[in-house]
């Protein structure tokens, strides 16, 4: 309990010290609200097309203008938050499970486990990551679920390496030794003594890679993978708006693109802030 209180105090301190982190946190709350309640909050039906008002610039009625089918861009941008947020969260949770566990096993058990996990990570790293993600989605099939999987796979080496290094350090730590002497099985030790200690570091990694996960997913849907029209998703909305940029209808692509950018920016700042909270040593 006191440890928690100390962490909270430290978190307060970090946010007070660094208002940018506080700002990022406020943004994050907004994103979460949009993801949770977006569909109930928006002024228009994001899918209702009305060709009479197609391609109208931003106005009081349509804050972000309307797209080529007359749909309200503002409503679509807000509603899209949920899907983009979901893809990012799902992919980092997935890679946390895959990479985190594989890395902990590699670091703790060493030997063959280590070699196999290392080889897999190296092989993934031998590809340009976005290109590999393209290949995976193309092979597995063009669905949102596969975008999540592909994004998780390309992040695998990062997580596996961090987890491996942390587990390796802890293998010889005193509390692990004590647990071993008191007759715990190796799996129990990993599950109850090593993993909980590696978790905070991986959590930082998760928030640091959230931004990249969103960018990766949006990039894939921008080139037509995964999400299909008329789904509201930032990447595909930018792709739809791209055709109208050259004729000056900037708002269709700009607003979803800006939403994407702000979300990524927010996650990056938040990741840095969280790292400061979890690991005060590395504060810069």
């Amino acid at each position: 309990m006191t440890a928690l209180a100390a962490t909270v105090r430290h978190a307060r301190y970090v946010m007070g010290e660094n208002p940018v982190t506080g700002f990022a946190f406020a943004l994050f709350v907004l994103i979460v609200i949009a993801a949770a309640f977006g569909p109930y909050l928006v002024p228009h039906d994001p899918f209702a097309s009305d060709t009479i008002v197609a391609l109208k610039p931003p106005s009081l009625r349509h804050w972000f203008g309307t797209d080529q089918l007359g749909r309200d861009v503002f409503s679509r941008v807000i509603v899209a938050t949920r899907l983009d947020f979901f893809i990012a969260i799902a992919s980092v949770v997935l890679v946390f499970l895959m990479g985190g566990l594989a890395g902990v096993a590699a670091g703790y058990f060493g030997g063959w486990t280590d070699r196999i996990v290392g080889r897999i990570a190296d092989t993934i790293m031998a590809f340009p990551l976005f290109v590999l993600a393209m290949g995976i989605v193309a092979a597995l099939g063009n669905t949102v679920q596969n975008i999540v999987i592909a994004t998780a796979i390309v992040n695998f080496p990062l997580y596996a390496r961090v987890a491996r290094a942390e587990a390796n350090v802890r293998r010889e730590a005193g509390f692990v030794e004590a647990a071993r002497l008191s007759g715990n099985s190796e799996f129990r030790i990993v599950g109850f003594h090593v993993l909980p200690n590696v978790f905070p570091i991986l959590a930082v990694q998760m928030s640091l890679t959230m931004g990249y996960a969103i960018l990766n997913a949006a990039g894939l849907s921008f080139i037509g993978l995964g999400v299909r029209p008329p789904t509201a998703e930032w990447g595909i909305m930018v792709a739809e708006g791209a055709a109208f940029i050259v004729s000056g209808e900037w708002w269709i692509a700009l607003f979803p693109g800006a939403a994407l950018m702000i979300a990524v920016f927010c996650f990056n700042l938040l990741g840095d802030g969280l790292r400061d909270i979890v690991d005060p040593r590395r504060r810069t």
Partner: peptide, 28 residues
């Protein structure tokens, strides 16, 4: 910090809008 948050396709579209559509400095 800003650079890592910019989706590359979005940057491209903004450049097109400004330098091709608005200013006319760049070709189609």
């Amino acid at each position: 910090t800003a650079g890592v948050s910019l989706p590359v396709f979005f940057t491209g579209l903004i450049l097109i809008y400004v330098f091709y559509y608005k200013l006319g400095w760049a070709p189609a």
